[in-house]
Amino acid sequence: MVLLAVISLLVALAALALAVVSLRRGQTSGQRPSEEALPEDVHGLRQEVAALRAETRDALRHLAVVRYDAFGDMGGHLSWSLALLDDSGHGVVLTSIHGRAEARTYAKSITAWRCEQQLSPEESEAIEHARPQR
């Protein structure tokens, strides 16, 4: 039984070595299969990936939160600004200012990474943090 296990292990290692050699040869030659040589299901998967990318462009997937003290006499960073933006920089920045007796919340519309209303430094920081790095 042990002999059978050892033989199986040696065959598996040999197959792995052949696969690694084959993979390295393919990488060093720099050749990729032509579009026509790919199986039909690969073409279908590429189309699905392209469709999913198109759908997610409008998703609010870039976000950042900046927490801060709005008033000098209060601590704890209870105030915050939250930027929620899509790939084109369209979305909203939400801000909550926490005071001793109340909290106020504001929403400002963002278009192409800019706002028609004046932004606080914290709101601008949240938008910049949400912006994807280039």
Rank of each mutant, 00 (worst) to 15 (best):
L4H: 07
A17I: 14
H62K: 08
R134C: 11
S8T: 08
A112W: 01
M74E: 11
P121M: 09
Q133H: 15
A126T: 02
R57D: 09
R134W: 09
R104K: 13
E40F: 08
D73T: 15
L60R: 13
T111F: 00
T111H: 10
G91K: 01
Q47D: 13
V42Y: 08
E128I: 04
E40G: 13
A70Q: 04
S120V: 05
A83E: 06
A70H: 06
R24Q: 14
V65S: 05
A15P: 00
H77K: 14
L84W: 04
A5L: 14
G89P: 06
S79G: 06
H129P: 00
V20M: 07
V42T: 15
E102P: 00
A14I: 10
Y106L: 10
A51W: 10
L119K: 05
L85D: 01
A101C: 07
Y106K: 02
L13W: 05
A83S: 09
P39E: 01
R61S: 13
L4D: 00
S109D: 10
V2W: 10
G26T: 07
R104Q: 13
S29I: 09
G30V: 12
E123M: 07
A50S: 12
Q117F: 06
R100T: 05
A126Q: 00
A126G: 04
L63T: 15
H90Y: 07
T28D: 06
V65W: 10
A64G: 00
C115S: 12
